[in-house]
């Protein structure tokens, strides 16, 4: 479909590629390009690394003391109220 896939086009769509948000054909073309192009492969690796860094950060972020305190101090008096209110 998209003729002449090039580094510029790939780099513009790498982010959506990482998120698997591109249509199948285009995504396949990008994969093919990545196999042949070291430069884009490096950019892809970086993009992927950022994605995982952020994922890891958000997942491990129980370090956040305020959050832990909030979660452990939750009292559900109100949810009982909601049910009994009606």
């Amino acid at each position: 479909m998209r003729n002449g896939i090039n580094c510029k086009l790939v780099s513009e769509h790498l982010s959506a590629f990482v998120d698997e948000e591109l249509d199948f054909d285009f995504s396949s073309e990008i994969k093919r390009h990545l196999c042949e192009c070291l430069d884009c492969r490096r950019k892809f690796a970086k993009m992927l690394k950022l994605h995982y860094l952020l994922k890891k950060y958000f997942a491990g972020e129980s370090l956040l003391e305020h959050k832990a305190k909030f979660v452990s101090n939750l009292k559900f008096v109100s949810s009982v109220d909601f049910v009994t209110q009606k």
Partner: peptide, 29 residues
């Protein structure tokens, strides 16, 4: 309500994180 409580508890952490990261402006998270 026990189910509701568990539902809320299960999501309280991610709700907190989301609000925390959305707002750097000192809102009361």
């Amino acid at each position: 309500w026990v189910a509701l409580e568990e539902l809320l508890r299960r999501h309280s952490g991610i709700i907190y994180s989301t609000l925390y990261h959305l707002g750097p402006s000192g809102q009361n998270i």
